[in-house]
């Protein structure tokens, strides 16, 4: 499991990029070819965001320390 968060793939960064694209397109100053590229990127980002939102349930874990003082995450049952 990777510890470092993938910044480019975070929901936050995707939503912000999407907002950025919408703003650029709204300006109407972007050349047509660039507009088409931005539009495609925007559509693909919105699909990825919606996919993420389709998760059915949060994952609950508990932070604990092992004997050596290292952190561990335990799965916890949810009611």
């Amino acid at each position: 499991m990777k510890k470092q968060k993938d910044i480019s793939g975070s929901f936050e960064s995707m939503m912000h990029r999407l907002e950025e694209i919408v703003e650029s397109l709204e300006g109407g100053t972007v050349p047509l070819e660039q507009s088409l590229i931005l539009y495609e990127e925007g559509v693909s980002l919105s699909k990825q965001c919606i996919d993420k939102l389709r998760a059915s349930e949060i994952k609950l874990k508990q932070l604990s320390k092992d004997i050596e003082g290292n952190f561990e995450l335990f799965d916890t049952k949810q009611e």
Binding site: M15, I21, L25, E26, G28, L32, S35, L36, L53
Partner: peptide, 23 residues
């Protein structure tokens, strides 16, 4: 958020349409 994304998509389509129309 769904609603926002929907609006984003709508706006993008409109804007792209407008860009093409204005060209």
């Amino acid at each position: 958020i769904f609603e926002n994304i929907r609006n984003f998509c709508y706006t993008m389509e409109q804007d792209l349409g407008n860009t093409i129309q204005s060209r």
